[in-house]
Amino acid sequence: MNDHNFYFQSYEEWRHALTKRCNIDLTPDYARKRIAALRNSNDSHTKEFSAKYGQAYLKQVIQWFEQAEQGH
Rank of each mutant, 00 (worst) to 15 (best):
N23S: 15
Y53K: 10
K20Q: 10
R32K: 13
G71L: 02
N40V: 09
F65P: 02
E69L: 05
A51V: 06
Y30H: 04
H4Y: 08
N5W: 07
F8R: 00
H4I: 13
G71S: 08
D43R: 05
S50Y: 01
E12D: 12
N23L: 14
E48R: 06
Q70E: 15
R32H: 08
Y53R: 09
T27M: 02
T46P: 05
L58G: 01
N40K: 14
F6H: 08
N5T: 05
K59A: 11
N5D: 11
N5C: 06
Q9Y: 03
A17Q: 10
A37E: 06
K33G: 14
N23C: 15
N2K: 15
E66G: 01
M1C: 09
R39Q: 15
R34V: 11
A56V: 11
K59I: 02
C22P: 06
T27G: 09
S10V: 10
N40R: 15
S10E: 13
K59V: 04
D43L: 07
K52Q: 13
R15S: 05
I24L: 13
F6I: 15
S41N: 14
L38C: 01
S10Q: 10
I35W: 03
N23I: 13
Q55V: 14
K20G: 03
I35L: 03
Y53I: 01
S10R: 05
D3F: 03
R32W: 04
Q60D: 06
E69D: 05
F8N: 00
Q67G: 03
W64V: 02
Y57E: 12
T19R: 06
M1H: 07
A37Q: 07
L38K: 00
T46E: 00
H16W: 09
K20P: 01
D43Y: 05
A17I: 04
F8A: 01
F6L: 15
Q60G: 06
R21F: 14
A17F: 14
T27V: 11
N40W: 10
T27C: 09
S41H: 13
I24E: 14
S41T: 15
N23P: 00
Y57R: 00
H4N: 10
I62S: 02
Y53P: 02
L58M: 10
N2S: 12
I62A: 00
W64S: 04
A68D: 01
V61F: 04
G71F: 03
A31P: 01
K33E: 13
L58F: 02
R32S: 07
I24T: 12
H4S: 09
H45G: 07
E48I: 07
I35V: 13
R39Y: 09
V61D: 01
Q9K: 09
E13V: 03
K52M: 12
E12C: 02
D25Q: 09
E13D: 15
F8M: 00
K20N: 08
M1L: 10
Q67A: 00
Y30K: 04
N42E: 14
Y53H: 11
K20E: 00
A68P: 00
K33Q: 14
R15H: 13
N40S: 12
H72V: 07
W14Q: 04
N40D: 09
H45I: 14
S41L: 10
N42C: 07
S44L: 12
S44M: 12
K33I: 09
K52W: 08
D43E: 12
H16F: 11
K52T: 13
S41C: 09
N23E: 15
E48V: 07
V61L: 08
K47A: 10
P28Y: 03
A56H: 14
Y11A: 02
I24H: 07
